[in-house]
Design a protein around this nucleic acid. Structure first.
Length: 651
DNA sequence: AGCACGCCGACT
DNA sequence: GTCGGCGTGCTC
């Protein structure tokens, strides 16, 4: 029951000009239900249509100079929007020049009436809290515990060994660490939210949590659940018992009572990047949420993302090294293939050891993922070709078209290779599938199983077998693999992306961490700093060097970037106003499709808030200003400015 | 997005 | 005179 007569409502709309709070009068008949955080129906535009929205706050009176409309109805009496989640959504949207309602759509699952009724009538027994917090082992004694208690931001090097749980199940060492950290927070009656890349990580984490946490205290929210199950899990998280909420990238927005810990597992994984507008990365959302709350923040990964490395160098995130635990035995080998390995082209040393290992237990073979990326390399030295103006990757935008830079659009007419000074470009077709059959011929007596993006396996048993997996789809093996072959390193590096090297180091590290302690990990055909980083297991040092390179190039995450898409004139006007901000420069614009151009706005972190605000203003201006300045209508394309900030696929 | 308001051409 | 055309602007 509220005696405050005014509801301030965020309307559910993707329109930038509606991304503000609207005041409505609460009629007497709804006073009992119109609470903060509930979903409501409200009229938008006098007597016109009805929109849905959220009551974000209640007020005694309105500042609005005009007659208020009435809240039409309360959709659900459950306050699904918690105040902290609203603050987070607002801040995340502001940072990304987007709409808060778009964030809320990601944060709050669709409502199911039956699931809600069942939840409301259910006895809510959340089960006991863990009594004695399990020690978080592998790190300096008490280090992580203290960090959690102090609300610290930490980057943990994950234990690179598979570990056996009490239940007999095998999980990656990271899963046990995260479970221990969550149990620790829970023992102090604080909630934890954990965002993992995919459901396979989630399965491991869930088994690890079962060791120390009552299952009623664990809430899982994943894409594989049915709608009602997902909504039910969400409602459980809104209750005032402390819980461990685990799920994918959107879990960083989960409601949680007395949040004590936020965990992002393997933040470099592309699955942490939200494809839906406004495209806020879970790492960024986690950082905002940590700042707004008293919770600690934990990044856990085998390799360090360049983004986290930047935060570590700033002193904002603290590096927590692994004191005790696995470091895979990595062997760098030449591409020189053993003739016996046939079409699989495996170097002889690796082939011999793999032959021996597969007699004992499972052997993992990591291959590239099929795909076709038309990119250009230097004809002489095969290095990926980079733009001589801004170092963006060179591509052929259309078949038969001329080579140009993906970033600034400069045509590569007088191109010169930065590595060998060659002048000829060559198209490289990447990603022919290396088949399991080739390996079957190379290992004639072994069972071969395949795990790929379409049919990924979660785990394999400790039996002799050859496990062929595309990068990112490697199953965990009971007891660990007896050998790991990273076969397509060279091919993986041939991708048109600023982040190839970083991604490769992460894929290799994650696969290497599946090896049994002491078992060999062969990285084939890759040497240099990247190979050394894997072999010495010094991913953070590599990230530091990579960050230094990005600084000299003025590439993310040394700076931030936003892509802005609009029609020629409008884009030019928007860029003129945005480019005038201090520390902002503009790359492009380049034509992308008929009538549209794209420009990249590059800016320092200090200018981020102002750039976002300005670009949001341009989006509103485009959506509300007179639609067509000149006579003569042009049907179709609405006059919009599309903004995406920090798009990881940008360069 | 939708929908109302407003200022210029053919109409009972 | 005025019905309604779509360009323009707003949404508590």
């Amino acid at each position: 029951m509220t005696d405050l007569p005014v509801a301030r409502v965020l309307v559910d709309s993707p329109l930038p000009q509606l991304d503000q709070l609207f005041d409505y009068r609460i009629p007497e008949r709804l006073a009992h239900a119109a609470l903060r955080g509930v979903r409501v129906r409200v009229p938008l535009r006098s007597g016109g249509r009805i929109a849905q929205g959220w009551i974000v706050e209640l007020a005694e009176r309105s500042e609005y100079r005009g007659e208020l409309s009435e809240v039409d109805d309360v959709v659900s009496e459950v306050p699904a929007l918690m105040p902290e989640v609203w603050r987070l959504a607002r801040a995340a949207a502001d940072r990304a020049a987007g709409n808060a309602s778009d964030i809320l759509r990601i944060a709050i699952p669709p409502r199911y009436v039956r699931a809600e009724k069942a939840w409301r009538s259910a006895e809510s027994d959340p089960g006991p809290l863990p009594e004695t917090p399990a020690p978080i082992d592998g790190y300096a004694p008490g280090r992580v515990q203290q960090g959690i208690a102090a609300g610290e931001r930490m980057s943990l090097a994950a234990d690179a060994r598979p570990v056996r749980l009490d239940s007999g199940a095998w999980v990656g060492g990271w899963a046990r660490t995260v479970a221990q950290a969550a149990a620790h927070a829970l023992a102090h009656d604080r909630s934890t939210v954990v965002a993992v890349p995919d459901y396979r990580d989630q399965e491991q984490l869930e088994s690890a949590l079962a060791e120390s946490v009552d299952p009623r205290r664990v809430v899982r929210t994943d894409a594989r659940q049915t709608g009602p199950a997902r909504y039910r899990a969400f409602l459980d998280a809104t209750a005032d018992a402390a819980r461990v909420v685990i799920g994918n990238r959107s879990t960083v927005y989960a409601p949680a009572a007395r949040l004590g810990l936020i965990v992002v597992v393997d933040d470099g994984d592309g699955l942490h990047s939200e494809p839906l507008a406004p495209g806020v990365h879970s790492r960024d959302a986690a950082l905002i949420r940590q700042e707004q709350s008293e919770a600690a923040l934990l990044f856990v990964a085998h390799s360090r993302s360049v983004e986290v490395q930047r935060l570590v160098e700033l002193g904002w995130v603290h590096d927590v090294p692994l004191r005790r635990g696995g470091r895979p035995r990595v062997v760098l080998t030449e591409q020189q293939a053993a003739p016996e390995s046939g079409g699989a082209r495996i170097p002889s040393a690796a082939w011999r050891e793999a032959q021996a290992a597969v007699a004992e237990g499972p052997v993992l073979v990591q291959v590239a993922r099929p795909g076709h990326t038309p990119m250009l390399v230097c004809d002489r030295c095969r290095e990926p070709a980079r733009c001589s103006t801004c170092s963006g990757a060179l591509v052929v935008p259309r078949a038969g078209g001329a080579a140009a830079c993906v970033l600034c659009g400069t045509a590569a007419t007088a191109w010169r290779c930065g590595v060998c000074d060659g002048t000829k470009l060559r198209a490289a077709v990447v990603g022919a599938t290396r088949t399991a059959e080739e390996l079957g011929r190379a290992f004639p007596r072994s069972r071969v199983v395949v795990s790929d993006g379409d049919r990924p396996l979660l785990r394999v048993r400790a039996e002799p077998q050859l496990v062929v997996a595309t990068r990112g789809a490697e199953p965990i093996a009971d007891g660990g693999y007896r050998a790991v072959l990273l076969l397509d390193g060279e091919r993986m590096l041939l991708r048109e992306s600023l982040r190839v090297a970083e991604d490769c180091l992460r894929w290799w590290s994650n696969a290497a961490a599946l090896a049994a302690p002491g078992s060999p990990v062969f990285l084939v055909g890759v040497g240099g700093a990247l190979g050394t980083a894997l072999a010495t297991w010094r991913q953070a040092a590599w990230a530091a060097e990579e960050l230094e390179t990005r600084r000299t190039l003025r590439f993310p995450p040394a700076v931030r970037m936003a892509s802005v898409v609009s029609a020629h004139d409008r884009l030019a006007a928007a860029l003129e106003r945005t480019g005038a901000i201090d520390g902002v420069d503009v790359l492009g614009p380049t034509p992308i499709e008929e009538g549209l151009e794209r420009a990249i706005v590059r800016f320092g972190y200090g200018a981020g808030a102002e750039v976002a605000q300005r670009l949001k203003g341009e989006a509103i201006r485009a959506a509300t200003e007179r639609r067509r300045p000149v006579a003569g209508r042009r049907p179709g394309r609405p006059p919009v400015v599309r903004v995406r900030m920090d798009d990881p696929d940008l360069p």
